[in-house]
Design a protein around this nucleic acid. Structure first.
Length: 421
RNA sequence: GGAGAGGUGGCCGAGCGGUCUAAGGCGGCGGAUUGCUAAUCCGUUGUAGUGGUUAUACCGCUACCCCGGGUUCAAAUCCCGGCCUCUCCGCCA
Protein backbone atom coordinates (compact mmCIF):
# COMPACT_ATOMS: atom_id res chain seq x y z
CA UNK A 1 0.00 0.00 0.00
CA UNK A 2 1.19 3.46 -0.83
CA UNK A 3 0.51 6.75 0.83
CA UNK A 4 -2.26 8.69 -0.93
CA UNK A 5 0.01 11.73 -1.24
CA UNK A 6 2.66 9.58 -2.84
CA UNK A 7 0.22 8.26 -5.41
CA UNK A 8 -0.93 11.77 -6.27
CA UNK A 9 2.62 13.08 -6.63
CA UNK A 10 3.99 10.14 -8.64
CA UNK A 11 1.41 9.29 -11.26
CA UNK A 12 3.94 8.31 -13.95
CA UNK A 13 5.74 5.98 -11.59
CA UNK A 14 2.50 4.32 -10.48
CA UNK A 15 1.40 3.76 -14.06
CA UNK A 16 4.79 2.38 -14.97
CA UNK A 17 4.91 -0.10 -12.10
CA UNK A 18 1.36 -1.29 -12.73
CA UNK A 19 2.11 -2.00 -16.37
CA UNK A 20 5.47 -3.64 -15.60
CA UNK A 21 3.88 -6.03 -13.13
CA UNK A 22 0.84 -6.46 -15.35
CA UNK A 23 -1.55 -5.24 -12.70
CA UNK A 24 -4.97 -4.33 -13.97
CA UNK A 25 -5.79 -1.26 -11.97
CA UNK A 26 -8.00 1.43 -13.48
CA UNK A 27 -5.59 4.28 -12.82
CA UNK A 28 -7.90 6.89 -14.30
CA UNK A 29 -10.66 5.83 -11.94
CA UNK A 30 -8.30 5.77 -8.96
CA UNK A 31 -7.25 9.37 -9.47
CA UNK A 32 -10.78 10.60 -9.99
CA UNK A 33 -11.87 8.84 -6.80
CA UNK A 34 -9.07 10.50 -4.87
CA UNK A 35 -10.34 13.87 -6.04
CA UNK A 36 -13.98 12.97 -5.40
CA UNK A 37 -13.13 11.91 -1.88
CA UNK A 38 -11.39 15.20 -1.18
CA UNK A 39 -14.37 17.24 -2.35
CA UNK A 40 -16.85 15.19 -0.35
CA UNK A 41 -14.77 15.55 2.80
CA UNK A 42 -14.66 19.30 2.41
CA UNK A 43 -18.39 19.48 2.03
CA UNK A 44 -18.93 17.16 4.97
CA UNK A 45 -16.61 19.07 7.28
CA UNK A 46 -18.44 22.31 6.55
CA UNK A 47 -21.86 20.78 7.27
CA UNK A 48 -20.70 19.15 10.47
CA UNK A 49 -19.22 22.40 11.67
CA UNK A 50 -22.56 24.14 11.10
CA UNK A 51 -24.40 21.40 12.90
CA UNK A 52 -22.05 21.35 15.86
CA UNK A 53 -22.54 25.08 16.30
CA UNK A 54 -26.31 24.63 16.46
CA UNK A 55 -26.01 21.78 18.91
CA UNK A 56 -23.85 23.88 21.19
CA UNK A 57 -26.54 26.55 21.26
CA UNK A 58 -29.23 24.19 22.53
CA UNK A 59 -28.28 23.98 26.22
CA UNK A 60 -27.51 27.72 26.35
CA UNK A 61 -30.89 28.74 24.97
CA UNK A 62 -32.60 26.16 27.14
CA UNK A 63 -31.01 27.75 30.20
CA UNK A 64 -32.28 31.17 29.19
CA UNK A 65 -35.71 29.70 28.71
CA UNK A 66 -35.71 30.40 24.96
CA UNK A 67 -37.40 28.45 22.22
CA UNK A 68 -35.17 25.70 20.90
CA UNK A 69 -37.62 24.27 18.38
CA UNK A 70 -36.23 26.07 15.30
CA UNK A 71 -32.75 24.93 16.22
CA UNK A 72 -33.81 21.32 16.51
CA UNK A 73 -35.47 21.40 13.12
CA UNK A 74 -32.54 23.05 11.41
CA UNK A 75 -30.15 20.58 12.99
CA UNK A 76 -32.22 17.62 11.96
CA UNK A 77 -32.28 18.89 8.42
CA UNK A 78 -28.49 19.15 8.29
CA UNK A 79 -28.21 15.65 9.71
CA UNK A 80 -30.11 14.28 6.75
CA UNK A 81 -27.72 15.90 4.27
CA UNK A 82 -24.74 14.73 6.31
CA UNK A 83 -26.07 11.20 6.19
CA UNK A 84 -26.35 11.28 2.42
CA UNK A 85 -22.85 12.62 1.90
CA UNK A 86 -21.41 10.15 4.37
CA UNK A 87 -22.89 7.39 2.29
CA UNK A 88 -21.35 8.80 -0.90
CA UNK A 89 -18.01 9.23 0.81
CA UNK A 90 -18.13 5.71 2.18
CA UNK A 91 -18.68 4.30 -1.29
CA UNK A 92 -15.91 6.40 -2.80
CA UNK A 93 -13.44 5.43 -0.10
CA UNK A 94 -14.29 1.79 -0.36
CA UNK A 95 -13.68 1.74 -4.09
CA UNK A 96 -10.54 3.85 -3.73
CA UNK A 97 -9.16 1.45 -1.12
CA UNK A 98 -9.85 -1.54 -3.29
CA UNK A 99 -7.99 0.00 -6.21
CA UNK A 100 -5.11 1.12 -4.02
CA UNK A 101 -4.75 -2.33 -2.50
CA UNK A 102 -4.03 -3.69 -5.98
CA UNK A 103 -1.19 -1.26 -6.75
CA UNK A 104 2.13 -3.11 -6.37
CA UNK A 105 5.16 -1.83 -4.52
CA UNK A 106 7.68 0.39 -6.24
CA UNK A 107 11.13 -0.97 -7.01
CA UNK A 108 14.56 -0.11 -5.68
CA UNK A 109 16.86 1.83 -7.99
CA UNK A 110 19.06 -1.11 -8.93
CA UNK A 111 16.15 -3.34 -9.95
CA UNK A 112 15.52 -3.42 -13.68
CA UNK A 113 12.25 -1.94 -14.92
CA UNK A 114 12.59 -3.18 -18.49
CA UNK A 115 9.60 -5.23 -19.58
CA UNK A 116 11.64 -8.15 -20.91
CA UNK A 117 14.53 -8.05 -18.45
CA UNK A 118 15.83 -11.29 -16.93
CA UNK A 119 17.66 -11.98 -13.69
CA UNK A 120 21.20 -10.86 -13.02
CA UNK A 121 23.68 -13.34 -11.57
CA UNK A 122 25.30 -11.74 -8.53
CA UNK A 123 27.41 -14.56 -7.20
CA UNK A 124 28.34 -18.16 -8.01
CA UNK A 125 30.11 -20.41 -5.55
CA UNK A 126 31.32 -23.99 -5.58
CA UNK A 127 31.67 -26.29 -8.53
CA UNK A 128 28.85 -27.68 -10.62
CA UNK A 129 29.51 -31.39 -10.14
CA UNK A 130 27.26 -33.96 -11.73
CA UNK A 131 26.30 -37.34 -10.30
CA UNK A 132 24.50 -40.38 -11.67
CA UNK A 133 21.55 -40.83 -9.38
CA UNK A 134 18.88 -38.28 -8.62
CA UNK A 135 17.12 -37.79 -5.31
CA UNK A 136 13.81 -39.14 -6.57
CA UNK A 137 15.16 -42.57 -7.35
CA UNK A 138 17.08 -42.77 -4.08
CA UNK A 139 14.14 -41.62 -1.97
CA UNK A 140 11.57 -43.86 -3.56
CA UNK A 141 13.80 -46.94 -3.62
CA UNK A 142 14.73 -46.55 0.03
CA UNK A 143 11.26 -45.27 0.93
CA UNK A 144 12.66 -42.16 2.55
CA UNK A 145 9.79 -40.25 1.02
CA UNK A 146 6.54 -42.03 0.23
CA UNK A 147 4.89 -39.91 -2.42
CA UNK A 148 2.19 -42.46 -3.20
CA UNK A 149 0.91 -42.81 0.32
CA UNK A 150 1.14 -39.08 0.87
CA UNK A 151 -1.20 -38.69 -2.07
CA UNK A 152 -3.48 -41.36 -0.61
CA UNK A 153 -3.67 -39.54 2.69
CA UNK A 154 -4.18 -36.06 1.27
CA UNK A 155 -3.53 -35.42 -2.41
CA UNK A 156 -0.58 -35.38 -4.75
CA UNK A 157 2.25 -33.07 -3.70
CA UNK A 158 1.75 -33.82 0.00
CA UNK A 159 4.85 -35.91 0.69
CA UNK A 160 5.09 -38.43 3.51
CA UNK A 161 8.59 -38.40 4.96
CA UNK A 162 9.63 -41.73 6.44
CA UNK A 163 12.50 -42.78 8.71
CA UNK A 164 15.76 -41.25 7.55
CA UNK A 165 13.84 -38.91 5.24
CA UNK A 166 11.81 -37.59 8.16
CA UNK A 167 14.92 -37.28 10.30
CA UNK A 168 16.75 -35.31 7.65
CA UNK A 169 13.81 -32.95 7.43
CA UNK A 170 13.63 -32.45 11.19
CA UNK A 171 17.38 -32.16 11.58
CA UNK A 172 17.64 -29.59 8.86
CA UNK A 173 14.96 -27.45 10.45
CA UNK A 174 16.69 -27.55 13.84
CA UNK A 175 20.06 -26.78 12.32
CA UNK A 176 18.78 -23.76 10.43
CA UNK A 177 16.85 -22.38 13.40
CA UNK A 178 19.86 -22.77 15.69
CA UNK A 179 22.12 -21.03 13.21
CA UNK A 180 19.86 -18.00 12.97
CA UNK A 181 19.17 -17.92 16.68
CA UNK A 182 22.68 -18.49 18.01
CA UNK A 183 24.92 -17.01 15.35
CA UNK A 184 22.74 -14.40 13.63
CA UNK A 185 20.90 -13.16 16.72
CA UNK A 186 17.31 -13.82 15.75
CA UNK A 187 14.47 -14.33 18.20
CA UNK A 188 12.79 -17.68 17.80
CA UNK A 189 9.09 -17.66 17.03
CA UNK A 190 6.70 -20.56 16.68
CA UNK A 191 3.71 -19.01 14.96
CA UNK A 192 0.13 -20.11 14.29
CA UNK A 193 -0.20 -21.93 10.98
CA UNK A 194 -3.64 -20.47 10.38
CA UNK A 195 -4.18 -16.75 10.03
CA UNK A 196 -7.05 -14.38 9.31
CA UNK A 197 -7.74 -12.22 6.28
CA UNK A 198 -6.16 -9.14 7.78
CA UNK A 199 -2.78 -10.79 8.29
CA UNK A 200 -2.69 -11.93 4.68
CA UNK A 201 -3.82 -8.53 3.50
CA UNK A 202 -1.07 -6.82 5.46
CA UNK A 203 1.76 -8.83 3.96
CA UNK A 204 0.23 -8.43 0.50
CA UNK A 205 -0.86 -11.99 -0.35
CA UNK A 206 -4.46 -10.84 -0.38
CA UNK A 207 -6.41 -9.81 -2.28
CA UNK A 208 -4.12 -10.64 -5.21
CA UNK A 209 -3.25 -14.27 -4.43
CA UNK A 210 -6.61 -15.44 -3.15
CA UNK A 211 -6.67 -18.45 -5.46
CA UNK A 212 -3.31 -19.68 -4.17
CA UNK A 213 -4.48 -19.79 -0.55
CA UNK A 214 -5.92 -22.76 1.23
CA UNK A 215 -8.79 -21.58 3.35
CA UNK A 216 -11.12 -23.05 5.91
CA UNK A 217 -14.88 -22.86 5.80
CA UNK A 218 -16.55 -19.51 5.94
CA UNK A 219 -17.53 -19.74 9.61
CA UNK A 220 -13.91 -20.16 10.68
CA UNK A 221 -12.72 -17.55 8.22
CA UNK A 222 -9.07 -18.59 8.44
CA UNK A 223 -6.39 -19.37 5.90
CA UNK A 224 -3.45 -21.79 6.00
CA UNK A 225 -0.24 -19.81 5.89
CA UNK A 226 1.74 -19.92 2.64
CA UNK A 227 4.85 -18.91 4.62
CA UNK A 228 5.79 -17.99 8.20
CA UNK A 229 6.35 -14.48 6.85
CA UNK A 230 2.63 -13.88 7.28
CA UNK A 231 2.15 -14.49 11.02
CA UNK A 232 5.63 -13.27 11.93
CA UNK A 233 5.54 -9.99 10.01
CA UNK A 234 2.17 -9.30 11.65
CA UNK A 235 3.35 -9.79 15.23
CA UNK A 236 3.27 -6.03 15.82
CA UNK A 237 0.36 -5.32 13.50
CA UNK A 238 -1.32 -2.04 14.44
CA UNK A 239 1.25 -1.22 17.09
CA UNK A 240 3.73 1.59 17.67
CA UNK A 241 7.30 0.75 18.64
CA UNK A 242 10.07 2.91 20.00
CA UNK A 243 13.11 3.63 17.86
CA UNK A 244 15.29 1.76 20.35
CA UNK A 245 13.25 -1.39 19.66
CA UNK A 246 14.63 -1.52 16.12
CA UNK A 247 15.83 -3.62 14.48
CA UNK A 248 13.72 -6.62 15.40
CA UNK A 249 14.86 -9.95 14.05
CA UNK A 250 12.60 -13.00 14.09
CA UNK A 251 13.14 -16.49 12.84
CA UNK A 252 10.45 -19.12 12.64
CA UNK A 253 9.86 -22.59 11.38
CA UNK A 254 6.50 -23.30 9.81
CA UNK A 255 4.84 -25.68 7.48
CA UNK A 256 3.79 -23.77 4.36
CA UNK A 257 0.63 -24.45 2.39
CA UNK A 258 0.16 -23.41 -1.21
CA UNK A 259 -2.49 -24.39 -3.70
CA UNK A 260 -0.12 -23.64 -6.58
CA UNK A 261 -3.16 -22.92 -8.72
CA UNK A 262 -2.30 -22.66 -12.39
CA UNK A 263 0.90 -24.65 -12.10
CA UNK A 264 -0.58 -28.07 -12.69
CA UNK A 265 1.52 -30.26 -14.90
CA UNK A 266 4.64 -28.29 -14.04
CA UNK A 267 7.08 -30.20 -11.89
CA UNK A 268 4.37 -32.13 -10.11
CA UNK A 269 6.59 -35.14 -9.51
CA UNK A 270 8.75 -35.37 -6.42
CA UNK A 271 9.76 -32.55 -4.11
CA UNK A 272 10.17 -29.64 -6.43
CA UNK A 273 6.71 -28.15 -6.11
CA UNK A 274 4.55 -29.06 -3.12
CA UNK A 275 1.25 -28.14 -1.55
CA UNK A 276 2.80 -28.53 1.88
CA UNK A 277 6.44 -27.99 2.69
CA UNK A 278 8.68 -26.86 5.53
CA UNK A 279 10.59 -23.66 5.74
CA UNK A 280 12.62 -21.67 8.22
CA UNK A 281 11.98 -17.98 7.69
CA UNK A 282 13.80 -14.84 8.79
CA UNK A 283 11.85 -11.63 9.25
CA UNK A 284 13.22 -8.24 10.16
CA UNK A 285 11.70 -4.96 11.24
CA UNK A 286 14.18 -2.33 10.16
CA UNK A 287 14.69 1.38 10.58
CA UNK A 288 13.88 2.90 7.16
CA UNK A 289 17.45 4.15 6.78
CA UNK A 290 18.91 0.72 7.37
CA UNK A 291 16.78 -1.66 5.34
CA UNK A 292 19.16 -1.73 2.37
CA UNK A 293 22.03 -3.04 4.44
CA UNK A 294 19.68 -5.35 6.34
CA UNK A 295 18.77 -6.99 3.04
CA UNK A 296 22.43 -7.70 2.28
CA UNK A 297 22.95 -9.15 5.75
CA UNK A 298 19.98 -11.45 5.42
CA UNK A 299 21.20 -12.64 2.06
CA UNK A 300 24.51 -13.65 3.63
CA UNK A 301 22.71 -15.35 6.52
CA UNK A 302 20.65 -17.44 4.13
CA UNK A 303 23.72 -18.24 2.03
CA UNK A 304 25.51 -19.42 5.12
CA UNK A 305 23.11 -22.34 5.48
CA UNK A 306 24.18 -23.65 2.08
CA UNK A 307 27.85 -22.97 2.72
CA UNK A 308 27.74 -24.95 5.96
CA UNK A 309 25.91 -27.75 4.23
CA UNK A 310 28.68 -27.84 1.66
CA UNK A 311 26.45 -27.14 -1.35
CA UNK A 312 27.12 -25.08 -4.46
CA UNK A 313 24.77 -22.23 -5.25
CA UNK A 314 24.33 -18.95 -7.00
CA UNK A 315 22.62 -15.69 -6.08
CA UNK A 316 20.50 -13.83 -8.58
CA UNK A 317 18.85 -10.42 -8.47
CA UNK A 318 15.31 -10.57 -9.82
CA UNK A 319 14.21 -8.08 -12.46
CA UNK A 320 11.22 -5.88 -11.68
CA UNK A 321 8.78 -7.92 -13.76
CA UNK A 322 9.57 -11.00 -11.67
CA UNK A 323 9.69 -9.29 -8.28
CA UNK A 324 6.65 -10.09 -6.18
CA UNK A 325 3.74 -7.73 -5.60
CA UNK A 326 4.93 -6.44 -2.22
CA UNK A 327 8.67 -6.51 -2.74
CA UNK A 328 10.88 -3.64 -3.83
CA UNK A 329 13.95 -5.80 -4.34
CA UNK A 330 14.42 -9.55 -4.22
CA UNK A 331 17.42 -11.83 -4.33
CA UNK A 332 16.93 -15.51 -5.01
CA UNK A 333 19.39 -18.16 -3.92
CA UNK A 334 19.53 -21.21 -6.13
CA UNK A 335 21.22 -24.40 -5.04
CA UNK A 336 22.92 -26.70 -7.53
CA UNK A 337 21.35 -30.18 -7.63
CA UNK A 338 24.04 -32.57 -8.84
CA UNK A 339 21.80 -35.47 -9.82
CA UNK A 340 18.94 -33.51 -11.33
CA UNK A 341 21.60 -31.24 -12.83
CA UNK A 342 19.89 -27.91 -12.45
CA UNK A 343 19.70 -24.86 -10.23
CA UNK A 344 16.76 -24.83 -7.82
CA UNK A 345 15.44 -21.86 -5.91
CA UNK A 346 15.70 -22.45 -2.16
CA UNK A 347 15.48 -18.92 -0.84
CA UNK A 348 14.00 -15.57 -1.64
CA UNK A 349 15.23 -12.55 0.27
CA UNK A 350 13.23 -9.36 -0.07
CA UNK A 351 13.00 -5.78 1.11
CA UNK A 352 9.42 -4.52 1.23
CA UNK A 353 10.32 -1.01 2.37
CA UNK A 354 7.24 0.42 4.12
CA UNK A 355 4.77 -1.28 1.79
CA UNK A 356 3.76 -4.03 4.21
CA UNK A 357 4.18 -1.84 7.27
CA UNK A 358 1.68 0.62 5.81
CA UNK A 359 -0.86 -2.13 5.23
CA UNK A 360 -0.12 -3.65 8.64
CA UNK A 361 0.11 -0.24 10.32
CA UNK A 362 3.39 -0.97 12.10
CA UNK A 363 5.16 2.20 13.11
CA UNK A 364 7.81 3.53 15.44
CA UNK A 365 8.31 6.88 17.13
CA UNK A 366 11.30 8.49 15.50
CA UNK A 367 13.68 10.97 17.12
CA UNK A 368 11.31 13.88 16.45
CA UNK A 369 8.48 11.98 18.11
CA UNK A 370 6.79 11.41 14.77
CA UNK A 371 5.20 8.06 14.03
CA UNK A 372 6.96 6.54 11.07
CA UNK A 373 6.36 3.30 9.22
CA UNK A 374 9.06 0.71 9.71
CA UNK A 375 10.58 -1.28 6.86
CA UNK A 376 9.97 -5.01 6.74
CA UNK A 377 12.18 -7.66 5.17
CA UNK A 378 12.14 -11.38 4.98
CA UNK A 379 14.18 -14.21 3.65
CA UNK A 380 13.87 -17.95 3.52
CA UNK A 381 16.59 -19.53 5.46
CA UNK A 382 15.79 -21.99 3.83
CA UNK A 383 12.92 -23.97 2.37
CA UNK A 384 13.66 -27.64 2.97
CA UNK A 385 12.42 -29.60 -0.07
CA UNK A 386 14.91 -28.45 -2.66
CA UNK A 387 17.64 -28.27 -0.03
CA UNK A 388 16.92 -31.93 0.68
CA UNK A 389 17.18 -32.66 -3.03
CA UNK A 390 20.60 -31.04 -3.20
CA UNK A 391 21.80 -32.76 -0.02
CA UNK A 392 20.74 -36.23 -1.09
CA UNK A 393 22.23 -35.82 -4.53
CA UNK A 394 25.49 -34.31 -3.29
CA UNK A 395 25.96 -36.76 -0.42
CA UNK A 396 24.81 -39.86 -2.30
CA UNK A 397 26.84 -43.03 -1.79
CA UNK A 398 27.83 -46.01 -3.92
CA UNK A 399 25.13 -48.20 -2.42
CA UNK A 400 22.36 -45.92 -3.62
CA UNK A 401 22.00 -44.26 -0.24
CA UNK A 402 23.10 -40.90 1.12
CA UNK A 403 24.96 -39.61 4.15
CA UNK A 404 24.08 -36.69 6.36
CA UNK A 405 26.23 -33.61 5.70
CA UNK A 406 28.98 -33.34 8.34
CA UNK A 407 27.44 -30.22 9.87
CA UNK A 408 24.22 -32.10 10.60
CA UNK A 409 25.82 -35.10 12.24
CA UNK A 410 25.87 -33.51 15.69
CA UNK A 411 22.13 -33.25 15.47
CA UNK A 412 21.59 -36.93 15.04
CA UNK A 413 20.78 -38.34 18.43
CA UNK A 414 20.30 -41.92 17.25
CA UNK A 415 22.79 -44.46 15.92
CA UNK A 416 23.26 -44.58 12.17
CA UNK A 417 22.19 -48.20 12.07
CA UNK A 418 18.58 -47.39 12.86
CA UNK A 419 18.07 -46.49 9.21
CA UNK A 420 19.41 -49.70 7.81
CA UNK A 421 16.26 -51.75 8.24
C1' G B 1 -20.08 -25.51 24.67
C1' G B 2 -22.37 -22.82 29.44
C1' A B 3 -22.16 -18.54 33.00
C1' G B 4 -20.03 -13.93 34.34
C1' A B 5 -16.67 -9.56 33.77
C1' G B 6 -14.36 -6.34 30.53
C1' G B 7 -12.21 -3.69 25.84
C1' U B 8 -10.59 4.28 26.94
C1' G B 9 -4.33 7.92 24.38
C1' G B 10 2.84 4.86 23.62
C1' C B 11 1.39 2.07 28.47
C1' C B 12 -1.72 1.73 33.09
C1' G B 13 -6.26 3.68 34.57
C1' A B 14 -10.76 7.23 35.92
C1' G B 15 -15.06 8.90 33.52
C1' C B 16 -20.88 6.15 32.31
C1' G B 17 -25.95 11.76 27.95
C1' G B 18 -24.27 18.50 26.86
C1' U B 19 -18.95 21.50 31.42
C1' C B 20 -14.50 15.51 27.55
C1' U B 21 -10.72 20.63 24.84
C1' A B 22 -10.76 12.66 28.41
C1' A B 23 -8.79 13.13 35.38
C1' G B 24 -4.49 10.90 37.56
C1' G B 25 -0.10 8.04 37.01
C1' C B 26 3.92 5.82 34.04
C1' G B 27 6.84 6.63 29.82
C1' G B 28 8.66 10.34 26.18
C1' C B 29 10.40 15.36 25.15
C1' G B 30 12.29 20.35 26.93
C1' G B 31 14.25 22.94 31.12
C1' A B 32 16.13 23.73 36.39
C1' U B 33 19.23 21.60 40.03
C1' U B 34 23.55 18.41 39.69
C1' G B 35 31.47 15.75 39.85
C1' C B 36 28.70 11.43 36.67
C1' U B 37 24.38 8.53 37.36
C1' A B 38 20.13 8.46 40.23
C1' A B 39 16.55 11.35 42.70
C1' U B 40 13.71 15.86 42.87
C1' C B 41 11.17 20.12 40.79
C1' C B 42 8.87 23.02 36.57
C1' G B 43 6.81 22.85 31.74
C1' U B 44 5.12 19.97 27.65
C1' U B 45 2.84 15.59 25.27
C1' G B 46 -2.21 11.48 20.71
C1' U B 47 -3.73 9.94 15.55
C1' A B 48 -5.81 10.75 10.82
C1' G B 49 -8.15 13.81 7.30
C1' U B 50 -9.17 18.55 5.27
C1' G B 51 -8.43 23.85 4.40
C1' G B 52 -5.68 28.69 5.00
C1' U B 53 -0.80 28.34 1.33
C1' U B 54 3.79 26.27 -2.36
C1' A B 55 5.70 23.95 3.03
C1' U B 56 7.21 17.66 7.92
C1' A B 57 6.57 25.31 10.96
C1' C B 58 1.85 27.87 12.44
C1' C B 59 -3.54 28.42 12.63
C1' G B 60 -8.78 26.77 11.66
C1' C B 61 -12.18 22.88 11.02
C1' U B 62 -13.71 17.55 10.98
C1' A B 63 -13.35 12.66 12.70
C1' C B 64 -11.38 9.15 16.21
C1' C B 65 -12.55 6.30 23.63
C1' C B 66 -12.48 -2.28 20.00
C1' C B 67 -15.58 -2.65 15.09
C1' G B 68 -20.49 -1.90 12.72
C1' G B 69 -25.47 -0.26 13.19
C1' G B 70 -29.37 2.41 16.18
C1' U B 71 -31.78 6.11 19.74
C1' U B 72 -31.01 11.64 20.44
C1' C B 73 -30.80 18.43 18.69
C1' A B 74 -26.37 16.15 21.26
C1' A B 75 -23.11 9.50 22.61
C1' A B 76 -16.66 7.35 25.41
C1' U B 77 -21.38 7.40 28.18
C1' C B 78 -27.90 4.57 26.37
C1' C B 79 -29.73 0.24 22.93
C1' C B 80 -28.68 -3.86 19.24
C1' G B 81 -25.14 -6.97 16.49
C1' G B 82 -20.05 -8.56 15.82
C1' C B 83 -14.93 -9.40 17.19
C1' C B 84 -11.41 -9.97 21.01
C1' U B 85 -9.54 -10.62 26.20
C1' C B 86 -10.03 -12.39 31.23
C1' U B 87 -12.43 -15.54 35.27
C1' C B 88 -15.27 -19.87 36.60
C1' C B 89 -17.67 -24.55 34.89
C1' G B 90 -17.88 -28.57 31.18
C1' C B 91 -15.23 -31.34 27.33
C1' C B 92 -10.43 -32.50 25.57
C1' A B 93 -4.22 -33.65 23.50
Amino acid sequence: MHDREFIIANRNLIEKICSLKKTKVDIERLYSLIEERRLLINRLNQLREDKNKLTDEVPKIKKQGGDIKPLLEKSKEISLTVGEIEKQLGNAEKEENTLMSWVPNILEKDVSTENDAIFKVIKETGTLNEKNRNYYDICTEKNYIDFKRGAKLAASSFPLYVGKGALLERTLINFMLDLHIEKHGYLEIFPPFLVNYNSLYSTGQLPKMEEDMYSLSKEDNLYLIPTAEVPVTNIYNDEILFEKDLPKKFTAYSACFRREAGSYGKETKGLKRLHQFNKVEMVRYSHPDKSDEALEEMLLEAEEVLRLLGLSYRVILLPGNDTSFSSAKTYDIEVWAEGTKEYMEVSSVSNFLDFQARRANIRFKNKDGKNTFIHTLNGSGLATPRTVIAIIEHYQTEDNDFEFPPVLRDYIKYGKEIFKS
